[in-house]
Amino acid sequence: MIHQNCNREGVWEKRYERCLICSFCNSRICHRKLSRTAENPNRWFYTCPHDKKFNKWEDEVKPHEWILVPYCGGCGAGLCRVKRFFSGSSPGRIMFLCRIKEGEGSCGYRVWQDELQAMEAREAEEKKKREAEAVEAMINNQNQFNVLREHIASTKDRLFQIEAEVSCCEVEMRLLKLQLEKLSKNKEVLEGKHLIASNELEQSQKLLEEKEAEQNAAFDRARALLEDRIVPAYV
């Protein structure tokens, strides 16, 4: 990424180191060393970076004397240099600079301590806001998931009911099919009987017509004979 204060591409390592500023140099980070004397064995202390007579035990440093120094956000060369201003337009302010000096390959990274703290505070607030939004989104998703799970459960229950109804319909369909087959067989039997009855009726009708014809012929013959035998009265 490109940091806003150095305009060079590099790794912005959001790492800090707790340091102590030398009271003689006022803008130099003290060196941390380990005492190996018989009086203070394995005790950490700080000393002036320019070997001036400044020594302070680490366990005697007051909380307000510590300063968090960032690692260079431009080239990643390591812990930044510290510069404290005592005059000019920014008295009392502290600036962090690339540990490589200008003209010797410095990336030009520089940032005021208070601006860096404000930036970190804003980022922390934004992170907190994003986390809150993420938690809210997670809760909403969980609620939606619960609703969908309940919907799925009710849908499964409805599917079970539908399957039961389908099974009942299948049983009824099989029964109706059996009844239809039975009715079809009965229809065929009835149609056969009807055909036989129709044939018998047709034959009976023919016999009846033949008998009527014979009776009519006999009647005509009888009438003719009768007419031949009758003598008129006026003869």
Results as ranks from 00 to 15, higher is better:
84 R>L: 10
84 R>C: 12
88 G>Y: 08
88 G>A: 11
89 S>T: 14
90 S>V: 09
92 G>D: 03
92 G>F: 02
93 R>L: 12
93 R>F: 12
93 R>H: 12
94 I>A: 08
95 M>F: 08
97 L>N: 11
97 L>F: 11
98 C>F: 07
98 C>L: 09
98 C>I: 06
100 I>S: 08
100 I>V: 15
101 K>R: 12
101 K>F: 03
101 K>M: 06
103 G>M: 04
103 G>N: 09
104 E>G: 00
105 G>D: 05
106 S>W: 02
106 S>V: 03
106 S>M: 03
107 C>M: 04
108 G>K: 02
109 Y>D: 01
110 R>C: 07
110 R>K: 11
111 V>P: 01
115 E>L: 12
116 L>Q: 06
117 Q>K: 11
119 M>Y: 04
120 E>F: 09
121 A>K: 15
121 A>D: 15
122 R>W: 09
123 E>Q: 15
124 A>D: 14
124 A>Q: 15
126 E>R: 14
127 K>Q: 15
128 K>Q: 15
129 K>C: 01
129 K>E: 13
129 K>V: 05
130 R>W: 11
131 E>T: 08
131 E>F: 07
132 A>L: 13
133 E>Y: 09
133 E>K: 13
134 A>M: 12
135 V>C: 00
136 E>S: 13
136 E>P: 04
137 A>C: 04
137 A>P: 01
137 A>G: 04
138 M>R: 15
139 I>V: 12
141 N>Q: 14
141 N>H: 12
143 N>Y: 03
144 Q>R: 07
144 Q>E: 09
145 F>E: 06
146 N>K: 13
147 V>D: 07
147 V>Y: 03
147 V>E: 09
148 L>T: 04
151 H>V: 01
152 I>Y: 11
152 I>D: 09
152 I>P: 00
153 A>Q: 12
154 S>I: 07
154 S>Y: 05
154 S>R: 15
154 S>K: 15
155 T>R: 13
155 T>Y: 06
156 K>S: 05
157 D>P: 00
157 D>F: 01
157 D>Y: 00
157 D>H: 02
158 R>I: 02
160 F>L: 07
160 F>K: 09
160 F>E: 09
160 F>W: 00
161 Q>H: 01
163 E>K: 06
164 A>M: 02
165 E>L: 08
165 E>C: 00
167 S>Q: 14
168 C>I: 12
168 C>F: 04
168 C>A: 15
168 C>E: 14
171 V>G: 03
171 V>C: 06
172 E>C: 03
172 E>W: 08
173 M>S: 07
175 L>A: 09
175 L>W: 07
175 L>V: 11
176 L>K: 13
176 L>Q: 13
177 K>H: 12
177 K>L: 10
177 K>I: 02
178 L>W: 05
178 L>K: 14
179 Q>L: 08
